[in-house]
């Protein structure tokens, strides 16, 4: 996804009538996919949730891209957390051993330090991301949206064909 497209998408979401809650939950679910390594079973599950639950899919996709980039930075921390939970924490050893020998669960690759660590990070950040995103959208729509609309660059974006095409399908 090109940076201009990402900016456009953010702008469109903020200036739409979609409920802040839907956007916030979609964004938070997408953050899980973005922060954790992509090809894992839990990400497939989150992806299904993103589609089935009444949350904003665009916000989710946007979060996948944004948090995918952030994920590269958090991988070393994720590895440390995963290593601590999988290797250092003796009390959890029994749980991991049972999970490891259960059907289906090993396909989640939970036994990988980066996968588990990043999943823990994304789950811990889930509620804060929901609250922060929702509050930011409300604040933006009440205080900043009109000012931003007056910016030349936004006018240019709005004038582009893509925006109009998008507006057709997202009133």
């Amino acid at each position: 996804m090109l940076p201009t497209k990402v900016i456009k998408q953010i702008f469109n979401l903020l200036h739409s009538n979609i409920s802040p809650k839907e956007i916030a939950f979609g964004f938070a679910l997408g953050s899980i996919i973005g922060l954790t390594p992509f090809f894992t079973l839990h990400n497939l599950f989150i992806f299904f949730l993103l589609i089935i639950l009444n949350v904003n899919i665009s916000a989710g996709m946007l979060a996948v891209v944004i948090f995918g980039l952030i994920g590269y930075l958090t991988d070393p921390i994720a590895h440390q957390i995963g290593y601590f939970l999988l290797v250092k924490t003796k009390s959890l050893e029994g749980l991991w051993t049972s999970l490891y020998n259960m059907p289906i669960v090993p396909f989640t690759r939970f036994n990988n330090t980066v996968v588990l660590g990043s999943l823990v990070i994304s789950l811990v950040l889930f509620i804060p991301i929901v609250i922060f995103t929702e509050k930011f959208i409300v604040f933006y729509r009440n205080n900043l949206s009109k000012k931003v609309e007056q910016l030349k660059i936004i006018k240019l974006i709005k004038a582009s064909g893509i925006y109009n095409f998008y507006k057709k399908f997202n009133p």
Partner: peptide
């Protein structure tokens, strides 16, 4: 050791 992180194999 894996390319990303470490796979921990739990023996039972």
């Amino acid at each position: 050791q894996r390319a990303k992180g470490i796979d921990v194999v739990f023996h039972k």
